[in-house]
Design a protein around this nucleic acid. Structure first.
Lengths: 351, 351
DNA sequence: CAGACTGCGGAATACGTTTTCCCATCACGG
DNA sequence: CCGTGATGGGAAAACGTATTCCGCAGTCTG
């Protein structure tokens, strides 16, 4: 109270607490985080009271260095603002907090170099687990450097787990992109669609490729003509532009458009509409991910629901020791594969 | 290479690097992070090479405790999966990374108790700045405890900044909710609308209240009848339900519906449609936030654009010392207020 | 050419914890 | 009454880094 507004009072340390309680630091430490050693009940109470009075919070960095391990999980995503990643992040954070872990988050922005650099600096925080998510671009030269970095990290006792990056030698939680897309293809065939266009991103983007190939696989043997493939960006604007191009070229020979993600599909719907083609009645439209706005778009968008939040949670379960959370022993190294579920809506009426 | 797959090799420390380079730890430290002291160029090179060879990363916790300060910013949000918060988070992360800071993120889930508890444990990480965002529920009893916690944090040399929580004694970046809503009201009047309904959340939710009141203020003096107020949840489903209720009650006496955020507005649009009322032609619909899907919904949603990403970035600029990033001196304590801009779209055609 | 000063390397200390090790006290059995 | 073990407290070392302080060599000044 006596010091000015800028009073740079150092936060109380364990020494302060010990002095206030009239015991040694060792006892104070033992009292506060119940070690193997016993402390007399009276002293425990005194220390607790002193800590409370002083507003003491243990210095987590100091604990980390004394204990030799932290309680943080590091999460690398491509873009937090993207609903795909933010849903995953939500799952990670929820599960981590349940296990008493703090999560630090960094965004790689789609650049493999940036991703590598981030994993590098993150290693300095000695996290208990690092989760890297986002389908990495295939063939980028940084792959080996990334593996090397993660390997150094792992030999130091850390756990690395991937989300939807199956090609790295770590436990991975994957979404069944191919299976979901195949199922969607069959569902559309069942609804009477025959002539398809696929809006996809460059094949180097693994997620896009898997969904594209899965869709083709689902069509296989049905005798329908080869779908028209339109390559574009993995974004809303990419879908929009691709749809415009498709419409300009003439869309009379297509029944339904499958975009490899929902934001593309939604962009495509407005692209089609602006070109005078009615999504739904004129051509069916389907997406992938089942993001929240899918139900509110008109017509409501047929999509493939992907348990993103669950994927995030599963990743931290994979990383934690078996005891901490339920997790089948075998899965620890193999990883887990989450199913995707098709949801038919008004954008693909039966025909 | 000789050790098994589980080789728990401790990560190299600065001692290892120093030994490898044939210098003392002091020199190694100075060489790696260029202190005030000079080191002979040859030694710098030797140390750098050794660090590179060993794959050394400084132990950030150790640095933190030696230096007495960290390079992390702690961000508290209500829900990462919510596009509102994830956009803010994106801005925070971007700006923080530009300044070489690592951000740790925690979600409070809308519960003031949880928020308090989170700020508590976060304080243990001794972040350089803590940013808490999300309009806190007014009158929750934890307010004082939160201020006390943040105060303890600040006297320890930390910076606390708020996003859109104007009632706490810290620099705050606010969105001009009231002004934006008032401007929207005037724009709708200009487009010929006269009889309004407002879909809002409980008044304890500050953001909702500000937008609601701002809208009424914008209407003031125009002579239009008092808008019908419908209280509901601050979510998509809340908007949907409120719209259904409104339609059941008979909607003949309303021209336009203003929902205090976009997800509510979008939910309301499908609610209206399902009740046989066409959004746009039959009744105008407007939201607030201008989230991404607003353009792709049909009809495209009139909204008030809010610079969320910028708000996040501004928050970290507010927190950092004046030199680090451009930031007017006066703003440091006062905080900044970001304008909101109305965007008229097809959901409110002139009438 | 003597003395002061500069430049730079290293030993030692500090940071805030946890943990190991030692010691005092006490209860108990012989 | 003495030895023995159990119990719990405290001193000190450890964790990995930054930094202060000291000392040595070399350079400049008068």
């Amino acid at each position: 109270m006596a010091d000015g507004p800028q009073g740079q009072a150092a936060p109380p340390t364990l020494h302060d607490v010990a002095r206030e309680a009239g015991v040694s630091v060792a006892t104070a430490s033992r009292a506060l985080n119940g070690s193997a050693r016993n402390v007399r009940a009276e002293n425990v109470a005194r220390v607790r009271a002193a800590a409370q009075r002083l507003g003491y919070r243990p210095h987590l960095s100091a604990q980390a260095i004394a204990r030799g391990s932290t309680r943080t999980v590091a999460l690398v995503v491509r873009d937090v603002a993207d609903p795909y990643f933010s849903a995953i992040a939500a799952g990670v954070i929820e599960e981590a907090e349940a296990a008493g872990l703090i999560v630090t988050m960094a965004v790689a922005g789609g650049s493999p170099e940036r991703e590598l650099q981030i994993v590098r600096t993150l290693r300095g925080t000695r996290p208990r687990v690092v989760i890297v998510t986002g389908s990495r671009i295939d063939g980028a030269g940084t792959r080996d450097a990334l593996v090397e970095e993660l390997e150094a990290y792992r030999t130091a006792g850390g756990r690395a787990v991937m989300i939807s990056q199956r090609d790295l030698p770590y436990p991975t939680v994957t979404i069944d992109n191919a299976g979901g897309a195949a199922e969607l293809a069959r569902a559309l065939l069942g609804a009477g669609y025959r002539r398809f266009a696929v809006l996809h991103a460059p094949a180097a983007l693994r997620t896009s490729r898997e969904r594209h190939e899965g869709f083709l696989a689902g069509l296989a043997g049905s005798g329908v003509p080869e779908p028209i493939a339109v390559e574009t960006d993995f974004t809303r604007d990419g879908g929009y532009a691709a749809a415009r191009r498709l419409a300009e070229r003439g869309i009379g020979d297509v029944d339904a458009v499958f975009a490899v993600n929902d934001v593309m599909a939604i962009g495509a719907m407005t692209g089609l509409r602006e070109a005078g083609v009615r999504p739904g009645p004129d051509v069916g439209v389907a997406g992938f991910d089942d993001i929240a706005p899918a139900v509110d778009v008109v017509p409501a968008l047929t999509s493939v629901a992907v348990p993103l939040r669950e994927a995030g949670a599963a990743a931290v379960r994979l990383a934690l020791p078996d005891g901490d959370t339920g997790c089948e022993a075998g899965a620890r190294e193999a990883g887990v594969r989450l199913p995707a579920r098709v949801i038919l809506r008004a954008s693909t009426p039966p025909r």
